[in-house]
């Protein structure tokens, strides 16, 4: 599934990133690599969300969140 479909309060594991080369590299430099855990903290109706990756909070626009493929982590 896409990260943009994620629900507030849930944690997901990054599988791969489907975006332009540049955005992908930037996300990876920020630690959004395969197997990294992403927690959705806040989300707007259609669009951006606030997520937490490797201890850091990020505001992420919809286009970027659309391109982050994740799967749910069972807790």
């Amino acid at each position: 599934m896409r990260l943009s479909e994620g629900k507030i309060g849930k944690t997901y594991e990054v599988e791969r990133i489907e975006n332009t080369e540049q955005v992908t590299r930037r996300l990876e430099a920020l630690g959004m690599t395969g197997h990294a855990e992403v927690k959705v903290l806040n989300k707007k109706e259609k669009g951006s969300m606030i997520v937490k990756v490797r201890g850091t909070r990020w505001a992420v626009g919809k286009r970027i969140a659309d391109g982050i493929m994740v799967r749910e982590v069972r807790e």
Partner: peptide, 11 residues
């Protein structure tokens, strides 16, 4: 261009 937000939110 793609206008996508990506910014760190500090404590």
């Amino acid at each position: 261009e793609e206008h996508s937000l990506l910014i760190e939110l500090p404590e």
